[in-house]
Write a protein that binds this DNA or RNA. Structure first.
Lengths: 119, 119
DNA sequence: TTGACGCATGCCGATATCGGCATATGATGA
DNA sequence: TCATCATATGCCGATATCGGCATGCGTCAA
């Protein structure tokens, strides 16, 4: 039945897949070329099962591809799935590039009120 | 001690904040201007407490700002926090725009393998 | 065939998430 | 002051997440 879901399945949503810092690191690393799981785990300081699990998530949302190479499984980047995210955030570009009526007033307000650095 | 965290705190990470579909909808809606909570909840078909909670997360990562207006609290967009996400994904742009050596090989490989093997 | 390697998966525990509901808090106006 | 509106928060239950560990399974080499 699955009436309620605590969160959109990480496995079906690129936004969710890249919400995990380690998974983002994997993607970055894979920009330099494909890697077998163990090597990847080693370079990122994670356990092999840990790497495998993250890779699975990435695979399921289509951000990586696997290629069998004998004993190994070479994981490679497939960044096409990141494009929608890029475009989605791009839809807000003008809101951070231009200074807006209300927005601008806010910003000035805040800059004065807080020092903005705290976090 | 908090040795292990099941996930990066949603409250400290913009990536995580926008991993939630409803929160993304809120951000989109707020592009057209600020809104009091109830109106926002109504327009997006969510309960008032639900809206408040999502707004809290968005506030804590700095994606929205609140302005007190008498009884109401007007929430407005602050898209600056989306810029890092845009840039991060942008770092993968050439991987989906250009056709790459290895990448290309993969694709060809897969096309062949599927035609032959047909799992 | 056997053993070692590479990897995936299953189970567990701790914790976080999300929605619903009730309720607390705060401002407004009669 | 008191009722009311607007919002925030607390608690709950169901579920998902993530890391660690053990183990299963396939591949290769001797």
């Amino acid at each position: 039945m699955m009436r309620r879901m605590a969160r959109a399945a990480t496995t079906s949503d690129v936004f969710n897949a890249i919400a995990e810092p380690q998974r983002r690191e994997i993607l970055i690393l894979l920009r330099t070329g494909e890697r077998p799981v163990t090597e990847l785990a080693q370079e990122l300081g994670m356990t092999q099962p840990g790497a495998s699990k993250h890779l699975r998530v990435l695979r399921e949302v289509g951000l990586v591809r696997v290629r069998e190479a004998g004993k190994q499984r070479l994981y490679g980047l497939d960044a096409r799935g990141l494009r929608p995210v890029h475009e989605w955030t791009g839809g807000f570009e003008r809101f951070w590039n231009e200074s807006f009526d209300r927005l601008d007033a806010y910003v000035q307000d805040l800059k004065q009120a807080r020092q903005e650095g705290s976090n």
